[in-house]
Computed example of a mutant assay.
Amino acid sequence: MSSQAPMIEMRNVDKRFGSVIAISDISMKVHRGEVMCLLGDNGAGKSTLIKTLSGVHKPSNGELLVDGKPADYQSPSDALDAGIATVFQDLAMIPLMSITRNFFMGREPTVGWGPFKRVDWKYADRVAMEEMGKIGIDVRDPSQPVGTLSGGERQCVAIARAVYFGAKVLILDEPTSALGVKQASVVLRYIAKARADGLAVIFITHNVHHAYPVADAFTLLKRGSSLGTFRKDEVSREEVLNMMAGGAELESLDAELSEFQRNEQHDDEITEGSLPASAAHGPQSSGARLATGY
């Protein structure tokens, strides 16, 4: 782990909506060149936490620090200006627009001046192709609609866009949740590349099998509270899965299913034992009568 100040840190952060406590007493820090996986089931508070990190919500209590300095963001644009880029599940992309237009949306490069200023689409196309090529995605025509790309490729467009525009902290909201194995592997490889490039990555997911290969540390959430932060060399995949899903709940479920199966077998044995011999051997008896002519 780096001896420098964390790139982003939360200290005892709460977020309340009226009387509802969405997250409570959350502490977490992520250094440069590190992937922090934020794990939790649905309703654990993951969405509220990333919106607090990205400037959508202001903490009710606690402190948020970026590069060792207190951060008081008034909007997501303030967080983005500080280098905190969030890629949400919906990707904020327009499927019918080209790859290039989605890549530079709102930040189009221009040439000329005054009334003669115009978008330099030739330069934009070249940059989009080069940035996608860096992560191993060969874009033959950057003018093709982004909706023609696979789910994993669209995720990579959104991530590459954030990195190109100077992200220091990359927050990924369930980037592999709707992807197949091959597409998810594309996204996971790019997460590893972002870490190698020195970014601090916060990878939000409920899939331990996607998280474990790329993570350096895990923060587990349950019902808005933190179960703790663990380094990868401190916990196994199975231990992370048990903490996240709740080992006690899984053991209870196994016991209930076993009991149900035993009761079902017992009922079948009683039913078979109560049938008369003629009924129990109905097909054979019927066959015998037909053979003898009775």
Rank of each mutant, 00 (worst) to 15 (best):
Ala279Arg: 13
Pro95Asn: 02
Lys117Asp: 03
Lys122Cys: 01
Asp216Ser: 13
Glu234Asp: 09
Lys168Met: 01
Asn207Gly: 07
Gly273Asn: 15
Ile84Thr: 02
Gly68Cys: 11
Asp125Ile: 10
Lys51Val: 00
Val235Leu: 14
Ile84Tyr: 06
Phe17Leu: 09
Met132His: 01
Ser285Ile: 15
Val201Thr: 08
Ile26Asn: 03
Pro276Cys: 01
Gly33Tyr: 01
Met10Cys: 05
Gly151Arg: 12
Lys15Tyr: 12
Glu239His: 12
Gly18Phe: 12
Lys168His: 05
Ile171Cys: 00
Met93Leu: 15
Gly43Val: 13
Gly112Cys: 11
Ala280Thr: 14
Phe230Ala: 13
Lys182His: 02
Lys222Ser: 14
Leu49Thr: 15
Arg237Pro: 02
Ser3Arg: 00
Leu220Lys: 05
Leu253Cys: 08
Lys168Tyr: 05
Ser278Trp: 07
Val127Gly: 02
Thr110Ile: 08
Met244Glu: 05
Val163Pro: 03
Ser77Lys: 10
Ser24Val: 09
Pro70Tyr: 00
Gln89Lys: 02
Ser177Met: 06
Ser47His: 08
Leu64Phe: 00
Gly151Pro: 08
Val20Gly: 04
Arg101Ile: 10
His209Cys: 02
Asn263Thr: 01
Thr176Leu: 01
Ser54Met: 03
Gly273Cys: 10
Met129Thr: 14
Ala194Val: 09
Ser27Thr: 13
Thr100Glu: 10
Glu153Leu: 02
Met97Glu: 11
Phe17His: 03
His206Phe: 06
Gly152Glu: 09
Gly136Pro: 00
His209Asn: 10
Gln265Lys: 15
Phe116Cys: 09
Leu290Tyr: 14
Gly147Met: 02
Ala184Thr: 08
Val201Ala: 04
Lys222Glu: 13
Ile8Ser: 05
Asn242His: 06
Cys37Arg: 03
Phe17Thr: 06
Leu65Arg: 15
Ala5Pro: 06
Trp113His: 10
Asn263Phe: 01
Gln183Gly: 00
Gly133Phe: 00
Val119Leu: 11
Glu234Phe: 02
Arg223Tyr: 09
Phe218His: 12
Thr271Gln: 10
Gly247Met: 05
Gly18Glu: 11
Val163Tyr: 00
Ile99Glu: 06
Ala200Phe: 07
Val169Thr: 15
Ala248Lys: 10
Pro213Met: 09
Ser226Gly: 15
Pro76Arg: 07
Ile171Lys: 05
Gln74Asp: 13
Ala82Phe: 03
Glu272Val: 14
Ala245Asn: 07
Arg140Glu: 12
Ala92Phe: 03
Tyr164Gln: 12
Leu49Val: 14
Val240His: 03
Thr229Asn: 07
Ser3Gln: 11
Ile94Met: 12
Gln4Phe: 10
Glu153Phe: 06
Thr52Ser: 12
Pro175Ile: 07
Thr229Arg: 14
Trp121Lys: 02
Leu172Val: 04
Ala124Asp: 08
Asp41Met: 06
Ser285Glu: 14
Thr86Phe: 03
Glu272Ala: 15
Arg118Glu: 07
Glu234Met: 09
Tyr164Pro: 13
Arg118Trp: 12
Ala71Trp: 00
Leu290Asn: 14
Lys182Ser: 10
Ser98Ala: 06
Met28Phe: 04
Tyr123Phe: 12
Arg195Ser: 03
Gly147Arg: 01
Gly83Ala: 05
